[in-house]
């Protein structure tokens, strides 16, 4: 089946089985291994991607459902045009990354949150990231990272030199 969609800002036409899971299509056929799979059942958030700007789980989505949609993966965020997204840098700076397996999903959930709420409270950040499990950090530094990125996104905090 031929599927047309926009992947990280670029129109794509891919040939694949309609019932291929999006996580498998991305990782195994398109080489986007930033998308992680952990539970495969919608309970951990590691495979989070943005579909038309909304956080969704690529392990519970079929390739056919991508038709006409805009899909953003962590690779798309790192390369978002000329302006570097503040989230990845703030995760590194605050020590919000330990093993790193949850990080792509965490960053994408944070991106979706900041689109809706550019100045979230810590409680709103917790709720926004509540679908992403981290087994290393204890979450506090991740919340710090999202706060910092939000402030930079609003221009309230300077970028590092």
């Amino acid at each position: 089946m031929r599927i047309n969609f926009v992947l990280n800002g670029e129109p794509r036409r891919v040939e694949c089985d309609p019932d291929r899971r999006v996580v498998d299509l991305l990782r195994e056929e398109l080489g986007l291994t930033g998308v992680k799979e952990a539970c495969g059942a919608g309970e951990c958030g590691a495979c989070t991607v943005l579909v038309d700007g909304q956080a969704r789980l690529s392990c519970l989505m079929l390739a056919a459902q991508l038709e006409g949609r805009e899909l953003t993966t962590i690779e798309g965020l790192a390369a978002a045009g000329q302006t570097l997204d503040p989230l990845p840098a703030s995760f590194v700076e605050t020590g919000a990354v330990q093993c790193g397996f949850c990080t792509p999903g965490m960053v994408l959930s944070a991106r979706a949150l900041l689109e809706r709420a550019p100045a979230p409270s810590r409680r709103e950040i917790r709720q926004g990231l509540s679908g992403n499990l981290c087994r290393c950090t204890g979450y506090q530094k991740i919340i710090d990272a999202v706060e910092l990125a939000a402030a930079r996104g609003r221009g309230d905090e300077p970028w590092p030199r």
């Binding site: 919608g42 956080a55 969704r56 679908g131």
Partner: peptide
């Protein structure tokens, strides 16, 4: 219910 991702789906 579930999580933000599950509620979006």
């Amino acid at each position: 219910l579930g999580s933000p991702q599950v509620r979006n789906m």
